[in-house]
Nucleic acid binder design. Structure first.
Length: 267
DNA sequence: CCCTATGTTCCCAA
DNA sequence: CTTGGGAACATAGG
């Protein structure tokens, strides 16, 4: 579920409940992919950070809890005394006034406790950083992969996932199958300009609940109301009225307007 | 049984 | 060594 806006939503909400609180314990409820966590009892939460899709709970003493939610992970705040969710609870971090529970049906989420790292080389953040077309053009180089796959790759620009990539490509009027090396700086610029508004809106809406995404307090986001193409197969394009279509690229569903994005028959 | 699912990593072939 | 394509991870729901 979580792309950058969903992770940022959790970061903002955790920021309201955790800073200053003492960690009473961390309990791994599902050992399959989570383990070997250092003991951080009695550390206090000093900050809640985000590094693209990684959520970082900084602790006194210089360590941090780093969570990646992958496909279906989410965090749920349980007021003191509230029982665990019936299903898919994978990790529980307890505090004096309540607990944070990692819930994850598909069990892809990862958790790590480590020393806080110094800032190092990191990819551009699709929301925070000013991204220039010429930088994307340069990063794409001679790559033959469809531009959609280039945007999903977290190495050059990070934070986008399948939903927001479909939305951004539509708004910029770019054919998702176009080879990355064939885009002009102008086209990269046009696309980059959409990153911030699309993600900002989604953050303000506390994420996109097309399926089971819920925020820290169990509430749905509302950005699904603003989607132009994702999940709208068979419906009319809001801009031109043509029928929105869906075709896989690299195994992931790609929603697009064939007219606005210049996609000809099939693919 | 079939297909789909908001992410990432690994393997393999060219 | 690089690139790109596909499978894999594990589970639920239509």
């Amino acid at each position: 579920m979580p792309e950058l806006p969903e992770v940022e939503t959790l970061r903002r909400q955790l920021e309201k409940v955790l800073p200053g609180s003492q960690v009473l314990g961390i309990e791994v409820l599902d050992r399959a992919r989570i383990g070997g966590l250092e003991n951080v009892c009695d550390c206090r939460v000093t900050d809640i950070g985000r590094e693209v899709k990684f959520l970082k709970i900084a602790l006194s003493g210089g360590r941090e809890i780093v969570v990646h939610l992958r496909m279906t992970g989410h965090l749920h705040w349980l007021e003191k005394g509230k029982p665990l969710p019936e299903k898919h609870a994978r990790l529980l971090i307890s505090f004096p006034h309540g607990n944070v529970c990692l819930v994850d049906p598909r069990r892809f989420a990862t958790v790590e406790i480590r020393k806080q790292k110094e800032s190092q080389e990191r990819p551009l953040d699709a929301y925070q950083d000013v991204i220039r077309g010429r930088d994307l053009h340069a990063a794409a180089g001679n790559r033959k992969i469809p531009v959609k796959n280039f945007l999903l790759d977290q190495k050059a620009v990070a934070g986008l996932g399948n939903i927001y990539v479909c939305e951004i490509l539509f708004r910029a009027g770019i054919n998702p199958w176009k080879k990355s090396c064939d885009l002009t700086t102008i086209e990269w610029d046009r696309m980059a300009k959409e990153f911030r508004p699309v993600l900002k809106k989604a953050i303000e809406c506390r994420g996109t609940s097309v399926s089971d995404w819920r925020d820290l307090f169990g509430k749905k986001g509302s950005n699904q109301k603003h989607l132009q193409v994702y999940g709208r197969e068979g419906k009319p394009c809001f801009r031109c009225g043509a029928t929105i279509r869906r075709k896989p690229i690299g195994g992931r569903s790609t929603f697009f307007c064939p007219a606005c994005q210049g996609v000809r028959q099939g693919k």
